[in-house]
Design a protein around this nucleic acid. Structure first.
Length: 285
DNA sequence: AAGGGCCTCAACCGCTATAGA
DNA sequence: CTCTATAGCGGTTGAGGCCCT
């Protein structure tokens, strides 16, 4: 059975939209609101199919659409969410205000995917393609400035790195450009990168890090960067449980609130925070 | 200047999901 | 329950611009 084409009528225009057509569509939608796409073209005086009108509006003409280059923060969000959700562009777009799924998809295919490959990261799995064979200039490695913060990240990572979501979390960590460093601890079954996890390991080498375009050394080593990382990890692992199979039963709302209310001027007692999280989760090494 | 190759991104296609009759 | 219309999604295409030779 042959599917009926969406724009089968004679005289239906295809291809690039003209400014005049755009204006007609805008005028109509401002007057009547969205919806009724099937009958919209005729009412608006457009020789287009309804689907084409809807897409033009959704991807280009909507007033809340943000145009222009993606920021490093947006890059990072896309990478992290792609590690989490895969090619679910519409789902990813909900986390980027003013960006459309189409725009994100294009940006991923033309920029981010390539950038990941250049860094030796598989853009599908978000894992290193071949960490032992990387050559060329040594990438700069971001190291966390505090052993406490490293320990915290490592613990949070370990907690959420069960078999089902380990790859996912690996992507999140990689996306954050961080070598989770804590030479004093090992997570046992979990092969998360550590300072001592060298190129002989099937995991990560010290050569493996992300581009400075995503986080500067300063951002990573200071508390602002750390807070963002923690929020990201906690929200993926805890608050957004529906996205992760076998997600922990641990409620991390308090920690999320703590991170939300924390500001740059505050002194951060990481050991205390670690203890708080540790006592709640309590399953780490 | 020309033209060939590459890149970007708006637009399209085909499919699924959902709502309502 | 079935059918139809519509909305939404992800993959793909192709026009146009840019760059290199």
């Amino acid at each position: 059975m042959v599917r009926t084409p969406c724009c089968k009528e004679e005289g239906i225009k295809k291809g690039a939209w003209t400014p005049e057509e755009d204006q007609k569509l805008i005028d109509y939608l401002q007057l009547h609101g969205e919806g009724g796409w099937r009958t919209l073209p005729e009412k608006a005086g457009l020789k287009r199919c309804g689907k084409s009108c809807r897409l033009r509006w959704a991807n280009y003409l909507r007033p809340d659409i943000k145009r222009g280059e993606f920021t490093p923060e947006e890059d990072n969000t896309i990478i992290r969410l792609h590690a989490l959700k895969g090619n679910k562009w519409a789902a990813i777009a909900t986390s980027l205000a003013g960006r459309t799924d189409n725009e994100i998809k294009n940006y991923w295919n033309t920029n981010l995917k390539k950038r990941l490959k250049q860094k030796g990261i598989d853009p599908i799995t978000h894992k290193p393609i071949n960490p032992t064979s990387q050559t060329g200039s040594e990438p700069k490695i971001h190291k966390l400035g505090s052993s406490g913060s490293a320990r915290l990240l490592n613990r949070v990572a370990s907690k959420y790195s069960t078999d089902s979501n380990r790859d996912l979390l690996t992507g999140i960590i990689i996306g954050n450009s961080t070598i989770i460093a804590d030479e004093s601890q090992s997570s046992g079954d979990v092969d998360f990168p550590t300072k001592n996890n060298t190129s002989t390991s099937p995991g990560f080498s010290d050569n493996f890090s992300f581009s400075d375009e995503f986080f500067s050394n300063e951002e990573i080593s200071d508390n602002v960067g750390l807070m963002e990382e923690l929020k990201g990890i906690l929200s993926y692992g805890g608050a957004d449980a529906g996205d992760i199979k076998d997600s922990p039963e641990v409620n991390v709302n308090y920690e999320m609130d703590f991170l939300d209310s924390w500001n740059e001027e505050d002194d951060l007692d990481l050991d205390k925070f670690v203890s708080s999280l540790d006592s709640k989760i309590g399953v780490f090494v």
